[in-house]
Design a protein around this nucleic acid. Structure first.
Length: 575
DNA sequence: GAGGCAGTGA
């Protein structure tokens, strides 16, 4: 019976065909993919399509939903609906299918399909209703295209609470808190009904201000709004708790949590409080709360593991991960990245390898650039450059990110494969990815380690001119290192003198090392004097620096450095 | 039939 719907389709006519198919799909969702194949090549009426789009969205397949919608557009362009066509025979997309397709666009990795739909709507003169318009608004907001969202909002003939909520939230997400409050004022002035979403968006705005007084005022506002029955109080509990956590007031967050009704205490709220303790470094309290949690989900485990990592308690983080695995929960990308950061700190390469097997099985490593980036980092750090390269190449080109390239370029550079690192830079460019500041640190390091002076200069000079990346002190430091390693001590010294920044301890110590290696005593003396004259606010580094004066002759200078630090430190304490 | 709120790093 599995293939029955297929046979029915061959015999059934037009619009009825799709609807009867859809009716059978509702009973047998597993047949959706098969049904799609059968629909291929047939004109797709929107009444049928819009019912197919949402199941795809709900199943987490926005792309499938989008493909269907784009087919509808193509069908419509091929045979526009006649004036006498019935509702089931219409080929023009309607507001149902539009809102579903735009929701898919919001979840898509590129804004391009959404642009196409908007362009199609403008071109076809389709007048979209409030649902479609709000979906389009959300699409622009979800890609951070706030000015386009605002333009659309201004042009919308009709707005409602959802339109305002979407725009306010978009402003909050982009950190434009003043605009969010401004929009809220307009909403109130316009007499629009506030709801739980409005209040939650406002709480989010207040959270971004990181101001406890504002947070308390917002809490009071939310309570008053709740008393006026604008929403159910449990709707906004998570917003209030999250706001207090972001303002660093975990105790207040806990109090709200403890006093809230049981139905408001969903697993998300538990995790927010948990993350508050983790952020505050109160890991014992976090652990106690975690133990009390009735349903520990993956996020809660990850929050706790991340908290232990942040607190530097790596062994506990790793142990917790093993406990999590024992419960049968499968790590996702965030968990893997969090655990890997503990592995990096602890040198736990064996656990990293075990994780590697795990993510190999579920395909996470090749599908997720973040996960791959973390693996490349740990393998390269442990000198396993071949494995790091395998991980890197296992990711499809279209999924590769600047961060993944950066990790690989740094790994190659630190393992002495300077030229390979530079060729990777070219590969990155050919894929249309733009290098950032981190990329250039890696590439300049690669030039430095491989003594590619001319190449280094070329890269350094191209940063601003070609890529619009302004060199910062780290890039200048790389250049000093490059010149120093190549024995061009005088050039390095004059490079430092022409820098737009004052050289820091890292740059001077790099040159000092080069002076020692290349036996340039003249510059060495100058550098030592510069180090002595440095501001000593970096006390630990200065003490480390003095370790550079390791040979017997320089012990005296080392003692002077330490003395100068002590003296300045005492001066600061007596002030 | 539209909109979200919790966890990750180099």
């Amino acid at each position: 019976m599995r293939r029955r719907p297929g046979r029915a389709i061959v015999a059934a006519p037009g619009g009825f065909l799709h609807l009867s198919l859809l009716a059978s799909l509702r009973r047998r969702p597993s047949l959706q993919a098969h049904a799609q194949l059968l629909l291929l090549g047939l004109p797709l009426p929107p009444a049928a399509a819009s019912r197919l789009l949402r199941p795809h969205l709900r199943a987490g397949h926005p792309l499938a939903s989008l493909r269907l919608f784009l087919r509808m557009i193509r069908d419509h362009q091929a045979s526009p609906t006649s004036a006498t066509a019935s509702r089931e025979q219409e080929t023009v997309p309607n507001s149902h299918s539009l809102s579903a397709a735009l929701a898919a666009c919001s979840r898509h990795e590129s804004p391009f399909p959404g642009f196409c739909i908007h362009a199609f709507l403008l071109k076809s003169g389709f007048t979209y209703d409030i649902f479609a318009a709000n979906s389009l608004l959300h699409f622009y907001a979800s890609f951070g295209l706030h000015s386009l969202a605002r333009n659309l909002f201004d042009e919308m003939p009709l707005r409602d609470t959802v339109s305002f909520n979407t725009l306010i939230d978009s402003y909050v997400q982009s950190g434009c808190i003043d605009s969010a409050f401004g929009m809220f004022r307009n909403m109130v002035k316009g007499g629009f009904q506030l709801d739980g979403w409005t209040i939650t968006a406002l709480l989010g705005a207040c959270a971004e201000l990181r101001d406890l007084m504002v947070a308390k005022a917002a809490h009071g506002f939310a309570r008053r709004a709740s008393r006026q029955k604008l929403f159910n109080s449990e709707e906004v509990v998570i917003g209030i708790v999250d706001m207090y956590v972001k303002c660093g007031a975990v105790q207040l967050a806990r109090k709200v949590f403890d006093l809230s009704e049981e139905k408001a205490k969903n697993v998300r709220v538990w995790s927010v409080v948990l993350s508050g303790y983790a952020r505050a470094g109160e890991m014992d309290e976090a652990q106690r709360l975690f133990n009390e949690m009735p349903n520990k989900d993956l996020v809660a485990w990850t929050v706790l593991i991340g908290g232990y990592v942040q607190a530097g308690r790596y062994n506990e983080a790793l142990q917790l991960f093993e406990e999590m695995e024992a419960t049968g929960l499968e790590a996702d990308e965030v968990t893997v990245v969090t655990v890997l950061s503990a592995c990096v700190q602890r040198g736990a390469i064996d656990l990293a390898k075990r994780l590697h097997c795990l993510v190999n099985q579920n395909g996470l490593i090749s599908k997720n650039a973040r996960v791959a980036t973390s693996f490349v980092h740990i393998y390269a750090k442990h000198g396993c450059i071949k494995t790091a390269m395998d991980v890197f190449h296992g990711v499809a080109d279209e999924l590769k990110t600047v961060e993944l390239f950066n990790s690989m370029i740094h790994g190659l550079s630190h393992n002495g494969y300077g030229e390979k690192a530079i060729s990777l830079f070219d590969e990155m460019e050919s894929l249309g990815l733009y290098p950032d500041g981190t990329t250039f640190v890696g590439v300049l390091c690669a030039c430095s380690r491989s003594c590619l002076v001319m190449q280094g200069y070329k890269m350094f000079n191209s940063m601003l001119d070609k890529y619009g990346v302004k060199p910062d002190i780290k890039h200048y430091g790389c250049m000093v290192d490059l010149l120093g390693r190549a024995g061009r001590i005088d050039d390095a010294y004059s490079f430092i003198q022409n820098m737009p920044f004052k050289a820091n301890h890292v740059i001077w110590s790099s040159l000092l090392t080069a002076c020692k290696i290349h036996g340039n005593n003249k510059i060495r003396k100058l550098v030592e004097n510069q180090i002595l004259a440095l501001d000593t606010t970096y006390k630990p580094e200065k003490l480390t620096l003095s370790g550079l004066f390791s040979d017997k002759k320089r012990k005296e200078v080392a003692a002077r450095v330490r003395k100068a630090i002590r003296h300045k430190s005492e001066q600061r304490h007596t002030r």
